[in-house]
Write a protein that binds this DNA or RNA. Structure first.
Length: 693
DNA sequence: TAGGAACTAAACACTT
DNA sequence: CAAGTGTTTAGTTCCT
């Protein structure tokens, strides 16, 4: 079990509470407290987890690159003026194929989600993303330029041939086009390969365990016969079409535009068909190569420095001729080469997808950050938090399909991501370690139902720790309920219902819930004849600090108080916590406060109108004084209601005087404390009052 | 580095 | 008595 815990800790990783080595195990061990011993396991588990995590990051990076690529391509396609017949002809093929082809390397929707969530966007990361994007754009530009040139060349050739005018025009042109196209393909592949390599170098692209040497397989020469066939067909038809349009110049321009803009996607387009029909060929790659070499003998992408650059080959070839020989013999079109090409295509496709998605996300993030940063209240840190939230949102939105959320295996490095979402820490992705995402509490940014709803499906199915604090979640659960109140058990149920993560280790998180309910002032326990339930004082929650350690016990059936409560069942926790020190008047005052701050209780707390009014008056006075005090207290009691601020400290009275009276002692003790509402006295200055009494 | 916040674990008390 | 509930404290980790 220790291992389990370790694993989970890791997997959840940074996300969760990496922190307590001891506590983490509990998460996994489902309440096996005894299992606490763990100091040792962590190390081992961590290793494995780290690996997993690294993989995940790599995948992430891969997808980022892909998305960028894809998006660029899409943009180009859209902008591409008369995108040629090619696009028209094979539009349907592309999608299915690409999807199918991606499968092997596909990141499950969940993983994607997690990745997205995990995306801890530190400034450095943003920078990296931007840089990557820039690099990609540069490459795109290069591609475009290249295609322009190619087109020009092609046109020149055409013109020349037409000049010669000996051969049947059509044949000549087709042949020329074919030549040029082959060349283009090669060049394009080369560029893509370079791009992939560069990605690799940047660490964006990593070899996946199941895909050995993947990145090393260039597209060059990867054209499958069918693809070539398709391509040529298109070329032919396209050319014909161009001819019909007449003007060579205009067609030239158009072509240039089209090609340049849609070339990359075309590649995939053309290739895609292949995926389905595992190529049998009719056209020969060798031919193509030799053709292209005739024109650019030394520019063969697979040949350089006297070495065959076919992935994993590196055979030494004295001269270009021998290289060609070698190429044709060793890397002829066979199953292996085809498979390699296919794999490479998948890689490219994935990269494209990821690029597109990540670009979207990046934009959303930046937009969001910008917006938030302009908001007066938002502090830099909250911004991060908020943005992170948005991040996860956009992530899920961007990839709705990624929501099939089949929970990944427990050992999967999912969690790390989890934490990411909410907490974009300044720690870069590599150090994703313990990112504790505490989303709304800290900065008084309550989770909106939308926040949770956005990823509701995800959290329901993925065993990912939600990036919200317990307090936030509890609040959410309560607020979501029709009555705005829930029993403890109902809160439990909400957690298990809404979050797959809370379907295990019940002892741990249930305990955490109880602790939070007790410690956070914003949670108010209300008793009625049927039992007790919890409500939330949203104002208190928004105030920020919820935990007030050492405050007097809330749960103390004091006689006077009980009576009061009997009439005002909704007397809140706040009151309870301090009632011990207070007289009924105090209670009334608190009730009034509750009334003002907690609409929910208005009626109840107003049980005694007179008291309520009186209390209100007093409260106002108090507020004035307290505000003064609070302003000095700064963060120590921002959320504290005046009453609580007044009696913050009864802290350990019970423990302190064990002799005094057991059992409901706290009540007794507290009750004895200060029968009169002596609030103006600052108890904080006098930590231990009991003794004084 | 200190302090605050969040979390976890645990102990204890009370209720059902 | 056991289980559930509620409170409190201590310790850990993370973040500022």
């Amino acid at each position: 079990m220790m291992q389990e815990s370790g694993t989970e800790t890791k997997s959840n990783g940074s996300a969760i509470q990496n922190g307590s080595g001891g506590s983490n195990h509990l998460l996994e061990c489902g309440g096996l407290r005894e299992g606490r011993s763990n100091g040792e396991t962590p190390a081992v588990d961590i290793g494995a987890a780290d690996l997993a995590h690294a993989q995940q990051q790599q995948q992430q990076a891969l997808q980022v690159a892909r998305q960028l690529l894809l998006q660029q391509q899409q943009q180009q396609q859209v902008s591409g003026l008369k995108s040629p017949k090619r696009n028209d002809k094979q539009p349907a093929l592309q999608v299915p194929v690409s999807v199918a082809m991606m499968t092997p390397q596909v990141i499950t929707p969940q993983q994607m989600q997690q990745i997205l969530q995990q995306q801890v966007l530190s400034p450095q990361q943003l920078q990296v993303l931007l840089q990557q994007q820039q690099a990609l754009m540069l490459q795109q530009q290069q591609l475009q330029e290249f295609y322009k040139k190619q087109q020009e060349q092609l046109q020149l050739q055409l013109l020349q041939q037409q000049h010669a005018g000996k051969q049947p025009k059509e044949q000549q042109q087709v042949a020329t086009q074919q030549l040029a196209f082959q060349q283009q393909l090669l060049q394009m592949q080369q560029l893509q390969q370079q791009h992939l390599l560069s990605l690799q170098r940047q660490g964006l692209l990593t070899i996946q365990p199941g895909q050995p040497a993947l990145p090393l397989q260039p597209l060059a020469q990867g054209m499958i016969p069918t693809e070539l066939q398709q391509l040529w067909k298109e070329v032919t038809s396209a050319h014909t079409a161009e001819e019909t349009t007449g003007n060579n110049h205009s067609s030239l321009d158009l072509t240039t535009t089209c090609v340049s803009s849609s070339a990359p996607s075309k590649t995939s387009l053309i290739m895609n068909p292949h995926a389905s029909t595992n190529g049998q060929l009719s056209v020969h790659t060798p031919k193509r190569e030799s053709l292209s070499h005739e024109e650019h003998p030394h520019s063969h992408p697979l040949y350089g420095h006297g070495v065959c650059k076919w992935p994993g080959c590196e055979a030494v070839c004295e001269d270009f001729q021998s290289f060609l020989k070698h190429l044709n013999s060793e890397h002829a079109l066979d199953d292996r080469s085809t498979a390699q090409c296919r794999v490479q295509m998948q890689v490219v496709q994935q990269l494209e997808l990821q690029l597109a998605k990540d670009k979207e996300r990046l934009q959303a993030m930046m937009t969001h950050l910008h917006v938030k940063s302009t908001e007066p209240k938002a502090a830099p840190q909250p911004l991060n938090l908020v943005s992170s939230v948005t991040l996860s949102k956009s992530a899920s939105e961007a990839s709705p399909q990624s929501l099939p959320h089949t929970p990944t295996t427990p050992t999967a490095p999912l969690t790390p991501v989890t934490q990411g979402p909410s907490v974009i820490t300044t720690t870069s992705m590599h150090t994703v370690g313990p990112i504790r995402r505490r989303y709304s509490d800290k900065y008084n940014v309550p989770i909106s139902s939308a926040d949770i709803a956005q990823n509701q499906e995800f959290y329901k199915n993925a065993e990912v720790r939600p990036p919200f604090t317990y307090a936030s979640l509890i609040r959410q659960a309560i607020l979501e309920s029709p009555e705005k109140q829930l029993t403890l058990n109902e809160i439990y149920n909400w957690f298990t219902r809404m979050f797959a993560y809370f379907r295990r280790n019940a002892a741990t998180w249930k305990g955490a819930i109880r602790t939070n309910l007790s410690l956070h002032k914003c949670f108010i326990r209300v008793e009625d004849e049927f039992g007790s339930f919890w409500t939330v004082d949203d104002e208190e929650f928004k105030r920020g600090r919820h935990i007030q350690r050492g405050r007097p016990r809330k749960y103390c059936p004091d006689e006077n108080f009980d009576e009061l409560v009997a009439h005002n069942p909704s007397l809140i926790k706040n009151m309870q916590s301090s009632h011990a020190y207070c007289t009924p008047l105090n209670a009334a005052l608190q009730a009034s406060m509750a009334e003002n701050s907690i609409p929910l209780y208005t009626t109840a707390s107003m049980g005694n109108p007179t008291l309520g009014n009186l209390a209100s008056a007093i409260r106002e006075e108090l507020n004035g004084a307290m505000e003064h005090t609070n302003s000095n207290e700064s963060d120590s009691s921002p959320g504290r209601s005046p009453m609580q601020a007044v009696h913050p400290v009864h802290v350990k009275e019970e423990p302190l005087d064990p002799e005094e009276g057991e059992g409901p002692l706290s009540l007794v003790t507290t009750a004895n404390h200060s029968p009169d509402f002596d609030h103006d006295r600052d108890y904080e200055d006098e930590p231990v009052n009991e003794d004084m009494e």
